[in-house]
């Protein structure tokens, strides 16, 4: 039997093209790129050469080493925020970086704006990550004097269908601390009536009773 190798190569090549077309679409979906990624040449190269996770790991090690220096917080976390931006730029799903660096920026570096900005970016890239929402809620509540403008993000998170009850509770506390009793009462009523978490529901009812407001049944 005589084989025609160029013809066989052409048939296989066409099959490869067809399979590759389907494969690329699925691979892009499984990569789960965040919008706007890649933003620069380094990210572009890391993505192209399939080195995103490894590059993010290297940056993460740099973050840890930087935090090991005794005076790392002297610049109010400027370098730390830049390193974190680079790490999550390579791999936006590396939420441990958002949490750890966010906490370091918030407390030792006393830079709540950079911390909140990093967490907001993390929430945009990972909408289902509850931990980041809780961190943001806690940060906003504890540094309310610096973060009045950031309550907006918390409000958006609190009305989402999958909003963690703790975030809603913290938002109610934020309203109370800000001296906005109407908004706080609305949150308490909502939590008292609809919260699936019994403790939070009871807590909201207690708040309403303490302020002499009607408790919804």
């Amino acid at each position: 039997m005589k084989y025609s190798y160029p013809a066989a190569a052409a048939v296989f090549f066409a099959a490869a093209g067809a399979a590759g077309w389907g494969l690329d679409g699925r691979a892009a979906a499984l990569l789960g790129d965040a919008p706007g990624n890649p933003e620069n040449m380094a990210q572009w190269g890391a993505r192209g050469l399939s080195l995103r996770k490894a590059a993010a790991d290297m940056k993460w090690m740099e973050i840890i080493q930087h935090c090991g220096e005794s005076l790392y917080h002297r610049d109010h976390g400027k370098v730390l925020a830049k390193l974190a931006d680079e790490a999550v730029g390579f791999d936006p799903r590396f939420t441990y970086v958002h949490k750890f660096t966010g906490a370091m920026l918030m407390w030792p570096c006393r830079n709540p704006r950079a911390a909140v900005s990093l967490l907001e970016k993390g929430i945009r890239d990972n909408p289902s990550e509850t931990g980041l929402k809780l961190y943001l809620a806690a940060f906003t509540y504890s540094r309310l004097e610096n973060l009045r403008g950031e309550v907006g993000m918390l409000e958006r998170l609190a009305v989402a269908p999958d909003a963690p009850p703790v975030v809603q509770k913290i938002l109610a506390n934020v309203y109370e601390k800000q001296g906005r009793p109407d908004k706080a009462a609305a949150m308490w009523r909502y939590l008292a009536k609809y919260s699936a978490d019994g403790d939070i529901s009871n807590w909201a009812k207690g708040k309403l009773e303490r302020h002499g407001m009607t408790v919804p049944q």
Partner: peptide, 26 residues
């Protein structure tokens, strides 16, 4: 597939195998 945010499904690996075999054949 190590770069994916979710592990690759069986059918992705099947398609990958077809793709690899087609390229190998070509």
């Amino acid at each position: 597939v190590r770069e994916f945010t979710r592990p690759a499904e069986g059918w992705y690996l099947t398609l990958l195998a077809i793709y690899a075999l087609a390229w190998t054949g070509a």
